[in-house]
Design a binder for these strands. Structure first.
Lengths: 168, 168
DNA sequence: AAAATATGTCAACAAACCTGACATATCTTG
DNA sequence: CAAGATATGTCAGGTTTGTTGACATATTTT
C-alpha cells in the first residue's frame, strides 16, 4: 500500500478513548434487522435472474422494467409509465427509444387525445417480457413451496403493506 | 415534436398485419406477476425512506449499505464486505473512503493477519445506521400490524427462500 | 387566440456500478 | 530465506441509469 495512514494499529480492547463500536448493532429490539436484511438479499438475488438474459440483448434493468409494464398494461401512455416507474421523462426517453428502435415496443397516437403516445409490445417485446419473468417466477415458486395458501396470502399482504399509499 | 416518425397513426383494431399485443400479458397463469410487481413496488418504496436522511449527509445508497453491514458485524474485513454486497473492490473503495474520511467508519489492522483491514463504526457511524434503519423498521411494523406470528414467520421464510444458497 | 398539456430533445452532470492493470504489505510455503 | 499467494489500495477509463434545466412541437382546452 502506498498511503499507510488512517490505519489504526492493533489495539484490541482499549483504543485511546476513541469511540469505536465493537459490538453488533442491535437497536434494542426496536429495529427489525431480520426483515431489512431479508429484503435486501431477496431483492438483490431476485433481480440478478434476468440479468443474464438482458445482456444478450444489450439491455439493462431499466429496459426490463419498461418492457414489463408495457406488456402488463398495453396501451398505457408515457405519462402512465413515468408515474409507475417514478423517474424523469429524460431518463425514460433513452431506454424507451432503444426499445422502440429495436422493435420491442411500438407507439400509437392516442385515438381520443392525439398528443398521447400509447405504448404496445410487439411480438418480440411480449416474448422478451415473458422470458425475463420466467426465472423470477420460478424463484418465487421455489420460495413458496411448502407454504400453504394462508402463508402465501400473508406474503402478498406484507408486500402490499410495504408500499406507499396511492395518491389519487 | 421534431421527428414525428415512428408514430403509428390511429389504427384501432387492425394495423396492417403488424404484430402488436393489445391484450395484457398473462403468462397463462404460469407467471406470478402479483409477487413480481409486489416486490418491485415494495422495494422501491422501502429504499426511498432513508434517502431524505442520506442527502443531508451527502451520501447515497451505496454508503447506506456499507454503514449498515459494518454496524451489524463490526470487525468485518473488506473482503467480507465485498462478498456481502457483491460488488467490486474498486466500486466499494470510493464509498468506503468517504465514510472513513467523514469519520463514520474506522479501519484497524487485523490482530492476527495484519494485511486485513477490520472495519468498525464510530459513534457517528452507529447513530447514522440506526437513523437510517428506523424509518424502514417503522414501515415494516406498519406492514406487519394485523398480522399474527404465523404470518410473520411466513414472510421471513419467503424472504429467505428467495435468496441464493450460500456458497460455502 | 391564449393557455395548458403530452411528449420529445438537447446539454450537462452525478451516482454507482464495471474492467483491467499495477503497487504494497504481509502471510504461507517450498 | 526466497517465491508465490493473499488482502488491500489505487489509477485510468468506461457504462448504465438516474438527475436538472431549458426549450420545441403538436394538440387540446379555455
Amino acid at each position: 500500500m502506498k498511503g499507510n495512514d488512517n490505519v489504526a494499529r492493533h489495539m484490541p480492547d482499549r483504543n485511546g478513548g476513541s469511540e469505536l463500536h465493537e459490538d453488533a448493532m442491535t437497536g434494542d429490539g426496536r429495529i427489525d434487522f431480520e426483515i431489512i436484511e431479508g429484503l435486501f438479499f431477496a431483492y438483490r438475488d431476485f433481480i440478478s435472474d434476468p440479468d443474464a438474459i438482458l445482456e444478450k440483448s444489450g439491455f439493462g434493468r431499466a429496459h426490463h422494467r419498461v418492457v414489463h409494464f408495457v406488456n402488463r398494461e398495453p396501451g398505457m401512455t408515457v405519462a402512465d409509465l413515468l408515474d409507475t416507474l417514478k423517474i424523469t421523462k429524460q431518463s425514460l426517453a433513452r431506454v424507451l427509444k432503444e426499445l422502440i428502435d429495436s422493435g420491442y415496443i411500438q407507439q400509437v397516437a392516442g385515438p381520443e387525445d392525439r398528443r398521447q403516445r400509447k405504448l404496445y409490445p410487439t411480438k418480440a417485446g411480449r416474448e422478451l417480457a415473458l422470458a425475463l419473468a420466467e426465472p423470477q417466477s420460478r424463484r418465487i415458486a421455489r420460495a413458496f413451496e411448502e407454504m400453504n395458501a394462508n402463508d402465501r396470502r400473508a406474503v402478498i399482504r406484507f408486500l402490499t403493506g410495504m408500499q406507499n399509499a396511492k395518491t389519487e
